[in-house]
Lab assay of single mutants.
Amino acid sequence: HNGKLCKLKGIAPLQLGKCNITGWLLGNPECDSLLPARSWSYIVETPNSENGACYPGDLIDYEELREQLSSVSSLERFEIFPKESSWPNHTFNGVTVSCSHRGKSSFYRNLLWLTKKGDSYPKLTNSYVNNKGKEVLVLWGVHHPSSSDEQQSLYSNGNAYVSVASSNYNRRFTPEIAARPKVRDQHGRMNYYWTLLEPGDTIIFEATGNLIAPWYAFALSRGFESGIITSNASMHECNTKCQTPQGAINSNLPFQNIHPVTIGECPKYVRSTKLRMVTGLRNIPSIQYRGLFGAIAGFIEGGWTGMIDGWYGYHHQNEQGSGYAADQKSTQNAINGITNKVNSVIEKMNTQFTAVGKEFNNLEKRMENLNKKVDDGFLDIWTYNAELLVLLENERTLDFHDLNVKNLYEKVKSQLKNNAKEIGNGCFEFYHKCDNECMESVRNGTYDYPKYSEESKLNREKIDGVKLESMGVYQILAIYSTVASSLVLLVSLGAISFWMCSNGSLQCRICI
């Protein structure tokens, strides 16, 4: 991952900044910058967002509201009850120091605090018919004063009620008058409520006091790749198909172990950190130390980045220098085999997901714990399936590479015959000098055995068991695999060879 928040398929997220979902939807004055928000790819909250409900109280069923919003990608904020005409018999300019803005008392931008007009609070009834052709999110509140005197001074009615009804919602609220500790300079409380109004449905408000009335509502448009994440990451000019709280993932790998919460087309989250597919040879310690064997393909974004291909070729060293050249036929066979294998694994496992966190309130801790156990169970199954699949494929890959290298080895052996000696570690020792032209003939299969047989015969008789390297004779190393990324691999195959001279070296080696 890149540690950044990015656009998702070209669409920017909605960053709530210092506000949370509650503050944004109710219209906390400190969240005025969010009022123009219309569309987004996903919503970003920060872990310690401080601006929620400015007048103390709870947004009821907040967790369910977050779940609903996680599939919303755009909205239209509109005046559901026009301020100047909807409440002619009531005062609608209630403000509070708890919702101060720029040093002055204020109130929510989407709600109206209705109080008595003169000395009376006549029963009010108002309704709205949803003609938007889509779901409408309606929010309101109920004020709970701290004393009967406060109730009387604001609403005149000691036994007030609030009723809200639609086809799918029907509740009646009565204020709970009680002494409470002071929070944000208030002994009173406000509880906030919401409902989704279906197209064509009607919502009716009736009250004799204590109503925090809707002013603006939201017509919602769903987008199934949307979601809500909690993150401290910063926004950058970048684009992605998959976003996590820790950063964007741009990967076609089937798995990731970065974060379980994802938005967009994302690899499946697994616990494993070692889900690797081999593309090189079986481990040979001396070669492995030099980083030549054991190439791997990573299938977990965050564990290993991208696929690494092994390729086969020849390396030689003689009086004229040293050089490398790919054996294109065996390399292409290996590439085709690995590509098919990788595609097979991805096809089997690479279903892209959006995974969002589930919200539970403080009273639902047991449910949250149960949900976590269920999620953990599914996660263990996914991890096991992934590891088992790759384990089985790896064994076949190792066998496949062994065969490829063996074929190259036999190709060289059949040409050199007794003009060189096998020394048991995949290397041959020449009994004759071999210049670049000679080396090329070994690589392309045109090695002239009779041409060098007499010199080889004489050297075999002279050496008589002495280690060949100390006599200045020449080696050919018969097994060799270097490691390159897919891009470098293609470039390498396009070149005939490249040279690395070893000044004054008397050794001649050709490596497979």
Rank of each mutant, 00 (worst) to 15 (best):
A248F: 02
G323Y: 11
C508A: 14
N394W: 07
I510K: 02
T305I: 15
G494T: 15
A334G: 01
M235Q: 04
S505T: 15
K329W: 03
A420K: 05
A420L: 05
V342G: 01
K421I: 05
D327P: 02
V488M: 10
K451T: 11
M307E: 01
I296N: 01
M500Y: 00
K348N: 05
S414A: 14
F498Q: 11
G337C: 09
I463M: 11
L408N: 07
I346T: 02
M349L: 15
F400N: 06
R396S: 02
V412Y: 05
G264P: 04
L391K: 04
S251P: 06
E410N: 15
R282D: 09
S344G: 09
E359H: 06
L416Q: 09
E368K: 13
I463A: 01
F400G: 14
T351G: 14
H315R: 12
Q288Y: 05
F498D: 00
T482M: 10
D402E: 15
K451G: 13
V473F: 11
S286G: 13
Q328N: 00
A478W: 05
E469G: 09
N436P: 12
G494P: 02
V374D: 06
E410R: 04
Y480N: 13
P450N: 01
S414I: 07
T331G: 04
F299Y: 10
R366M: 06
A295V: 11
I479Q: 08
P245V: 08
I512G: 00
L363T: 05
G357C: 02
I510V: 14
S453E: 11
R290V: 00
I381R: 02
P254Q: 08
D376T: 06
I496C: 14
Y314E: 05
A495L: 04
P285S: 01
K457N: 13
G426C: 10
S485W: 03
F293Q: 02
L468M: 07
V345N: 14
G310L: 04
T262D: 00
F299M: 06
E364C: 08
Q246G: 08
E368M: 07
N385E: 10
S231W: 07
G377D: 10
N252Y: 03
I258E: 02
L292E: 05
